[in-house]
Design a protein around this nucleic acid. Sequence first.
DNA 1: TCACAGGGTTGATGTGAGTCAACCACCCTT
DNA 2: AAGGGTGGTTGACTCACATCAACCCTGTGA
Lengths: 246, 246
Amino acid sequence: MKAPAPATPTGLKKACSQCNLFELCLPFGISDSDIVRLDELVAAQRKVKRQQPLYRTGDPFEAIYAIRTGSFKSDVLLEDGREQVTGFQMTGEILGLDGIGTGLHSCNVIALEDSEVCVISYPKLEELARVIEGLQHQFHKVMSCEIVRDHGVMMLLGSMRAEERLAAFLINMSQRFTARGFSPTEFHLRMTREEIGSYLGLKLETVSRAFSHFQEEGLISVQQKHIRILDGEGLKKLVQHQAGTR
Amino acid sequence: MKAPAPATPTGLKKACSQCNLFELCLPFGISDSDIVRLDELVAAQRKVKRQQPLYRTGDPFEAIYAIRTGSFKSDVLLEDGREQVTGFQMTGEILGLDGIGTGLHSCNVIALEDSEVCVISYPKLEELARVIEGLQHQFHKVMSCEIVRDHGVMMLLGSMRAEERLAAFLINMSQRFTARGFSPTEFHLRMTREEIGSYLGLKLETVSRAFSHFQEEGLISVQQKHIRILDGEGLKKLVQHQAGTR
DNA sequence: TCACAGGGTTGATGTGAGTCAACCACCCTT
DNA sequence: AAGGGTGGTTGACTCACATCAACCCTGTGA
């Protein structure tokens, strides 16, 4: 802690231009000549230990964050203590967009494992976005995609049954791991059953039962947090073709 | 229909600078001197008849829309026909943000009554946002608020019981009517029970029963789509203090 | 004036997921 | 190697909401 020194300026220069995540991240689609100018965008990097918050509800909004390593969950709390997990974020994804509207963050973001983020000063981002067209557009895209993602979650929560939700969740995780160069069929979940349940609007017992049921059906194999997808097509059918009751 | 003539350029000039909605809309917070420059932003106005779409899933994204009169619902459809209403929009609110990310719209937007929107060319908006700082910031705010709103809906769908959801919905509607100069306690819903249900992740019968129950409790009075809130505090208590089960 | 249609209400019954509770399997620490 | 704590699984039972179905408004048009 202490007063953090200018955060390893060495590793920082050429933050974006050298980052292997850039095609998933904010700089995507920006010309080579412009991309070096982005390096000044990343004011610092910040490490966040497992279970520690990147920011909390009510914190003043100053920056957005790009995940360099690790993963996070975001959640909203009701006064009576109920938690709703609003998303899980992986490398290259952007955090903090919830704060722009009011100047205060409106959710909590917690590291699911020891993680590291690039701190992107928001005033600086606005400034650069006015000059670099590609950055402006990419930033808008990121926000728009977040809105579309949220609509997908609403669909999930509002219109799907428990096993459909979990199947959709697994497919989504698989796709995102794939985009990051990991196996589409075998991965390690960083979140607990309870967190998955909160995200999907289910209780942890229901999540656990659904996992077991999928395993019985030969769709997946589960060992704690290790998931192996045996029948991806079967999972996809579950999501869409199961005659919906709700 | 036909090839639409330059859409009543008379009524259009000074679209924003004269609009009584501007404090709810995109131009909010922009200096008087800049606001006249916004008038060129609104390429046209468009009338949409009740039940007609403003745009549909898959339509190419070209513009965003500010609601001038009337109201809309947005929804997402699953292949098997299930519908999820993702929101209800009123005057001054912005539609179309879902299209920026992919270049295609990802939901349907349908007028709940005969309505009128300002068509804001997106390329033009990006261009102007690079010049008018206030516009850039306000646009980002609008998108951010949309994300925060969506998180609220997730909370609702994921963690609240039927009557809590409906109470939250009524409170939200009341606030938005108030912001538009209408009565906080008496208003006319433009959507059906089924649409409310879809939005809240409930069946229309459940919505209807909850309305009836609220009426029995003396919280509201309902006559078809006319709602009168008799005990706003009671409604608020319902949302937060009911010991949550889910 | 009547009749029809779409939207809304209400009741009886069913069921998917929640609740409660016991138990298990991993760490992690000592 | 033992012990404790956290996270996960499974079973028995309950309940909130869905489903099915009948009926009732209200507005519209012939």
